[in-house]
Simulated scan of single mutants.
Amino acid sequence: MSADRFAPANCPRLVVKIGSALLVDPDGKVRRQWLEGVVADLAARHAAGQKIAVVSSGAIALGARRLGLPKGGRASLEDAQAAAATGQIALSHCWAELLHDRGLTAAQMLVTLDDLEDRRRYLNAASTLDRLLSLGVVPVINENDSVATEEIRFGDNDRLAARIGQAAEAQGVILLSDIDGLYTANPHRDPAAKLVPEVRRIDARIRAMADGGSASGMGSGGMVSKLEAARIAQRSGAHLAIISGKRDHPLAAFDADGVGTVFVGEKQGTARKAWLAGRLTVRGRIAVDAGAATALGQGRSLLAAGAVSVDGRFARGDVVDIVGPDGHAIARGLIEYDAEDAARIVGRRSDALEVILGYAPRSALVHRDHMVLL
């Protein structure tokens, strides 16, 4: 059964994500009785030896009620930041209290997009997570919405959960949702839609099934963000499940009946390449011709001769996407040149680069050791 992949024996470390629509009722209060059931499920897994991290939404919704802000605290960026700062205290207190009642210690981690996109800060966060989990603590993680802006934020906790899964070296990620998985069509509009129990590869057919709307209207992540989270998890070798959080004891229910959609993790490459593949921001794009796209698929480096154009402002060592002739990103890697020099040598053969640049060229625009295929 698909749920077996997330059992403590097969999944020593698990990340569980809970959305606002499940944790907070329409009046802006914590659904405490339901959350007590979730914590009971977490405690049972912890007793069985599983180390668990929780990614919890809800701060903005809780803070908006306390501050009397309109539109659930999302009328403006300033309202959202104020609501988050106020609600996070209440959210953390609730988690700490309920986990303590089950004999568990809670820790709080607030992160921003930059904390996980910058390699050094990512490694610092990973080290903290590792130590907390090894001590048997349950980290409760949320985006630091009090300082995040539209330009530098995850925007939803689905992708944050997948990135935390990477940092924690988790074998599984479970997204508790207001829908019980991925359907062949939007089940709220099409009664013939069928639940997809397992996905091994996210291709165009699977992406076409996604719908941008959340059934509740309270959360910020729809099925599109969940597919992106699944892609990040799969590339790091972790399984990801989308299951219904509308049931009491949702994790125990999933254990019992396996209802949900499981995205099966791929064979894991290096941790550094998984981090590259999971990044949500890049500094630029390098467009390549068909020949270069084929060569990249065979595991080769990107040479200047195969590039056709450069877009973006980046320096050597920044992350860029490599885009094929159809306009879709086919790889991601660390660029060996700054944007100005890269633009000067696109389409040029290696033996001409020294004359153009005025210095000895590097072996590639993007070396295969610093590149991951998407």
Rank of each mutant, 00 (worst) to 15 (best):
residue 80 A to K: 15
residue 293 A to W: 02
residue 297 G to Y: 03
residue 183 Y to C: 12
residue 351 D to H: 12
residue 325 P to N: 12
residue 55 V to C: 05
residue 88 Q to P: 10
residue 236 S to H: 12
residue 69 L to T: 04
residue 293 A to C: 10
residue 115 D to E: 10
residue 249 H to T: 03
residue 1 M to D: 12
residue 65 R to P: 01
residue 15 V to H: 04
residue 354 E to N: 00
residue 157 N to K: 05
residue 183 Y to G: 08
residue 7 A to T: 08
residue 274 A to D: 06
residue 247 R to A: 13
residue 50 Q to G: 13
residue 202 I to Q: 08
residue 307 A to T: 05
residue 292 A to E: 12
residue 336 E to C: 05
residue 372 V to E: 14
residue 70 P to E: 09
residue 160 L to E: 11
residue 5 R to L: 14
residue 33 Q to V: 12
residue 84 A to S: 15
residue 43 A to M: 08
residue 160 L to I: 10
residue 126 A to F: 12
residue 338 D to V: 03
residue 46 H to Q: 10
residue 187 P to T: 11
residue 255 D to F: 00
residue 161 A to G: 06
residue 210 A to T: 11
residue 15 V to Y: 03
residue 90 A to V: 13
residue 292 A to I: 06
residue 217 G to I: 11
residue 90 A to I: 04
residue 67 L to V: 07
residue 244 S to D: 09
residue 234 Q to A: 14
residue 281 T to M: 12
residue 234 Q to C: 13
residue 9 A to Y: 00
residue 358 G to S: 09
residue 157 N to H: 06
residue 345 I to S: 08
residue 136 G to Y: 06
residue 138 V to Q: 07
residue 345 I to E: 03
residue 152 I to A: 09
residue 363 S to A: 15
residue 13 R to N: 08
residue 145 D to L: 03
residue 195 L to P: 12
residue 214 S to R: 14
residue 330 I to S: 04
residue 203 D to Y: 09
residue 206 I to K: 00
residue 260 G to L: 04
residue 203 D to K: 02
residue 165 G to S: 06
residue 338 D to Y: 05
residue 256 A to R: 15
residue 361 P to C: 14
residue 189 R to N: 06
residue 184 T to W: 07
residue 248 D to Q: 10
residue 240 L to M: 14
residue 255 D to I: 00
residue 171 Q to P: 01
residue 263 F to P: 03
residue 257 D to F: 07
residue 278 G to K: 07
residue 158 D to P: 03
residue 360 A to C: 03
residue 64 A to Y: 06
residue 124 N to W: 08
residue 192 A to I: 01
residue 235 R to G: 14
residue 36 E to M: 09
residue 144 N to K: 07
residue 113 L to N: 06
residue 231 R to I: 01
residue 113 L to K: 13
residue 59 A to S: 15
residue 348 R to A: 15
residue 282 V to L: 07
residue 171 Q to N: 10
residue 185 A to K: 13
residue 75 A to L: 04
residue 132 L to C: 13
residue 326 D to E: 15
residue 301 S to N: 08
residue 238 A to L: 10
residue 175 L to R: 01
residue 301 S to W: 02
residue 69 L to K: 01
residue 130 D to W: 07
residue 193 A to Q: 14
residue 317 G to R: 11
residue 314 F to E: 00
residue 130 D to I: 00
residue 200 R to A: 01
residue 146 S to E: 09
residue 75 A to T: 05
residue 307 A to M: 09
residue 358 G to W: 08
